[in-house]
Amino acid sequence: MPLVRVHNFSISLDGFGSGEPQSLESPFGHAGQRLHEWMFATSFWDREAGQRGVDAVFAARHELGFGAEIMGANKFGPPGWQDDPDWQGWWGDEPPFHTPTYVLTHRPRPPLEMAGGTTFHFLDASPAEAIAVAREAAGDLDVRLGGGASVVRDFVAAGLVDHLHLVVVPIVLGRGARLWDGLEALEDTFDIESVSSPSGVTHLTFTKRG
């Protein structure tokens, strides 16, 4: 069966996937772009000038083998985007997903077809229901779970994530959206591998045991 995978999900040393408060001007709150600077320095992000080491190898897997994506409401837009009928996401006219993309929200709206193959669908659904819809759309390909932290946490807690790639960035945020809450003893159900990078980040890979 196709897998549910998370890739390139950055967290701070204290486990936060974003800071606060999130706004149109500051999508990651007080964290700014510090959680993602490791990726911006890779050839995955900058094909000409980016480095091609271990970070680039991990980052590139974000693109491979996906037929659908699921994301939370706070990844699609800042607080209050549901009240703006013209809001189309952070990514401009051609979002980078190129697949059916399912946005979890308690206020669904009609699908939004964008250039480049991305169509946003807005679902008021449980994690299991969302996975079922996304898997049908993905066919034989995998489903990417894009975040944010609360969405990843809920899907992991429900036993629905097969592969989880986290990037631990050596900063302390102190507040924001935290990944780890309620996920005690995750090591009992996942095999965990750790790879340190010269950039200072640590790649953690969680693979669900059969």
Rank of each mutant, 00 (worst) to 15 (best):
G67E: 00
T119G: 02
W180K: 13
K75D: 00
L64P: 09
T189A: 10
D154Y: 10
F9K: 03
H98T: 12
V133H: 04
P110G: 06
A157H: 15
S194V: 14
G50V: 02
S150P: 05
F120A: 04
L64K: 15
P127M: 12
D84Q: 11
H36I: 00
E94Y: 09
T118H: 02
R209K: 15
N8W: 04
H203M: 03
D46L: 01
G15T: 14
M114V: 14
G53K: 07
A158C: 11
G80L: 03
H121L: 10
V152F: 02
G139Y: 14
I131K: 11
N8P: 06
G159P: 13
W81N: 04
G147H: 05
F120R: 04
W45R: 10
T42C: 01
D140G: 08
D162N: 11
P198G: 02
F16P: 05
R144G: 09
H165P: 00
P170L: 01
S18R: 13
G139L: 12
S43V: 08
L164V: 07
A157N: 12
G77L: 12
H30M: 12
T202D: 06
A132H: 08
D191E: 13
T105L: 05
F120G: 06
G139K: 15
E94K: 10
S199G: 06
A137V: 12
R34W: 12
W91R: 10
G210Q: 15
G29S: 09
H121M: 08
F16L: 14
E37A: 13
A149W: 01
G29M: 10
V168A: 07
S43E: 04
R52E: 08
T99H: 08
F16W: 13
L24G: 06
L166V: 07
W87Q: 06
R109A: 03
A138L: 05
E69A: 13
V152D: 00
W180T: 15
G92C: 11
A125W: 08
M114H: 07
E187H: 15
A115Q: 14
S126G: 09
S197D: 04
L35Y: 00
L183T: 05
